[in-house]
């Protein structure tokens, strides 16, 4: 059975590629977080029925029924 090494040769060989992928993923997470904050702050994603009475939205439902 081969000995388990803490740092395999492949880690050294692929370090720059793994670093690039890691930084790209981090940037992606930051961007999606930023986008989410912008959309939530503007209230776009909150326009749904929930447990709080929303008279404005109830009116829309009544209009749709007519």
């Amino acid at each position: 059975m081969s000995e388990l090494k803490a740092t395999h040769e492949i880690h050294t060989r692929r370090f720059s590629r793994n670093l690039g992928v890691g930084l790209t993923l981090l940037a992606m997470v930051a961007l999606i977080f930023g986008l989410t904050m912008v959309k939530i702050t503007r209230g776009e994603l909150n326009e749904r029925f929930d447990h709080v009475a929303r008279p404005a939205m109830e009116l829309k439902v009544e209009e749709a029924d007519q």
């Binding site: 492949i10 060989r13 692929r14 590629r17 690039g20």
Partner: peptide
């Protein structure tokens, strides 16, 4: 497996190659 880890390609592509 170790065999898979040790399998080397003639050229190891860098992150820059994928960007290209």
């Amino acid at each position: 497996s170790d065999a898979a880890l040790n399998a080397t390609r003639p050229y190891e592509p860098t992150f820059g190659d994928y960007v290209a």
